[in-house]
Write a protein that binds this DNA or RNA. Structure first.
Lengths: 118, 118
DNA sequence: TTGTCATATGAATATTTTATCATATGAATA
DNA sequence: TATTCATATGATAAAATATTCATATGACAA
């Protein structure tokens, strides 16, 4: 090996990161909340999915420190932690920039590719 | 909503990205290959896992355009595409920077947290 | 051409993750 | 305090993903 920097962060930390981050729905939640802190019910409407689904995903993001919440009467307003914003932006920009590329790679892919992506 | 930029990238593209990227093992593969292009067997030794496991994961990364390969005799040398390097670096830096933070969030987490992370 | 090394592939299984449902908690208000 | 709204939680079901095993392919060397 010419470089061993990839050993500097331990597996458990990488796992924690991806536990919360490695999922489309949670990424969308982050992308939404990043600009608009909002309540669970409003997020539910924007995301168009079940209340408990949203709550579970928010718990997950809370556990890994991507979001926090503040109480507002009956509501809980979730917002993205400042520390997490740069990486959300970076991933968002990457996806946006390589959208066409990602799709074309997928289309010309070899036979091993799973059907759901075709 | 004060900002609707999160609607500009379609779900399918986000899904493609996370199909490949949202996983600890594949991220480690990317982090390794980014600095050291190498053969499947060498990667297998570095990662300490099964050959077919490595191959399957490499196929996945290949399908979504994160890596490519070149033939060298019997070997296949996998390397990370230049386009993918910035986002790998960004995530790597984020994880490294917030390592302690990620871990502490997890420890103080509410009861909903899965046991595997404790 | 046979054997061996390197990799790829497909199928089966195991494991993890996600989604859903039922219900609990807790705040506000009639 | 009963009711309703907002959210959280736990259990289960369902789906997706990862892992493993057996085997195929393909290059090279004996």
């Amino acid at each position: 090996m010419t470089n061993t920097s990839y050993n500097l962060v331990n597996d458990n930390t990488i796992r924690l990161f991806f536990d919360a981050f490695g999922n489309m729905k949670r990424f969308k939640i982050l992308a939404i909340l990043k600009n608009d802190p909002m309540s669970v019910s409003r997020l539910q409407r924007v995301m168009n999915c079940e209340q408990s689904d949203v709550s579970h995903n928010l718990q997950c993001l809370l556990n890994c420190g991507f979001v926090n919440k503040k109480i507002n009467g009956k509501e809980r307003i979730y917002y993205v932690n400042e520390e997490a914003k740069p990486i959300i932006n970076a991933v968002y920009k990457h996806i946006n920039k390589y959208e066409k590329y990602l799709i074309s790679c997928n289309i010309m892919a070899n036979p091993a590719i799973s059907m759901k992506n075709r």
